[in-house]
């Protein structure tokens, strides 16, 4: 099957790649753009480890075809910290609260949490839990993740 040329913006940078029409956006990020921070845990949109923002909307990149990224803006975990390396408050709070154990679900949860805080800067515990219900973590029991997200939200509100 012939490949399709795709132009997109990833983490602010213009990119081009050739996608097999069957390849997911996740495949293209990982295999064509070497952005392996987004993870595949299920390939069926159930685990959220591949979460990215597509034109600002939170999606499972395993459920989006690579060719669908044409002309779109993609934001991944690799673009979350400032270009100079300063961490996003969510990233800092995840380390501080020990909100990761194996760390495999962490990129997806950070991206999803950032999307939550963009639309709801002051979420309740229940709102955090329901928003993150599409992101599986098998290590932590979610306790420290929820605390880290709420603490980061407070931090961001304080800074605003």
């Amino acid at each position: 099957m012939s490949k399709i040329h795709v132009s997109a913006t990833v983490n602010g940078d213009p990119v081009e790649f050739l996608a097999d029409p069957r390849e997911t956006l996740l495949d293209c990020l990982r295999d064509h753009l070497d952005l392996t921070g987004s993870k595949e845990g299920c390939g069926t949109g159930d685990c959220g480890a591949c979460s990215v923002l597509l034109d600002g909307r939170l999606v499972c990149s395993c459920l989006v075809l690579g060719v669908e990224a044409e002309g779109k803006r993609v934001e991944t975990i690799e673009g979350m910290a400032e270009p100079g390396g300063e961490l996003h408050p969510l990233q800092r709070k995840f380390i501080e609260h020990a909100a990761l154990q194996c760390g495999f679900c962490t990129p997806g949860i950070l991206v999803a949490s950032k999307a939550l805080l963009a639309r709801n800067p002051d979420p309740t515990e229940e709102e955090v839990r329901y928003w993150l219900a599409g992101n599986l973590c098998r290590c932590t029991g979610y306790d420290k993740i929820v605390r880290a997200v709420m603490d980061a939200a407070a931090d961001l509100r304080g800074a605003a």
């Binding site: 229940e126 839990r129 219900a133 992101n135 029991g141």
Partner: peptide, 17 residues
């Protein structure tokens, strides 16, 4: 054989532990 049907706890299933 997928996570939709082999359903592990999600954040909204659990309280603080």
């Amino acid at each position: 054989p997928i996570f939709l049907d082999y359903r592990i706890p999600v954040a909204s299933d659990l309280p603080m532990i």
